[in-house]
């Protein structure tokens, strides 16, 4: 898998779970999560970085993303969290 795909749907969470509050997310810094469809047609749920979470309307379905793994302690284990960030595609803005 290449690790590239496109956003299917997202939300910007202003009242995050405690583990994310500890990372600094909250009302003044919402956390974006969503569904990504990989180029291989597999869908995953993921965190989305590099988007303007203060303006959810600026984040739309079809935006191209690429995988980054984000080290964080979620639930009881520490393991990489599936995270994507926006990527630029020639010919698209």
């Amino acid at each position: 898998m290449k690790g590239t795909g496109r956003l299917v749907a997202t939300t910007c969470i202003s009242v995050p779970p405690p583990a994310l509050t500890k990372e600094g997310y909250g009302r003044s810094n919402p956390c974006c999560t969503g569904v990504v469809e990989l180029d291989e047609s597999v869908r995953v749920v993921a965190r989305i970085e590099g988007v303007n979470t203060q303006d959810p309307d600026s984040i739309s379905a079809g935006m191209p993303v690429e995988i980054v793994f984000h080290d964080a302690k979620m639930i009881s284990r520490s393991k990489p969290v599936v995270t994507f960030r926006l990527r630029s595609v020639p010919g698209e803005r």
Binding site: A9, T10, T11, C12, I13, V15, P16, P17, A19, L20, Y25, C31, T33, G34, V35, V45, A46, R47, M74, I75, K79, V81, V82, T83
Partner: peptide, 14 residues
């Protein structure tokens, strides 16, 4: 869903 930080309002937001 839990592992990436979804809440229930987040799921229904998506």
């Amino acid at each position: 869903e839990r592992e990436v930080g979804f809440t229930f309002p987040g799921v229904f937001g998506v």
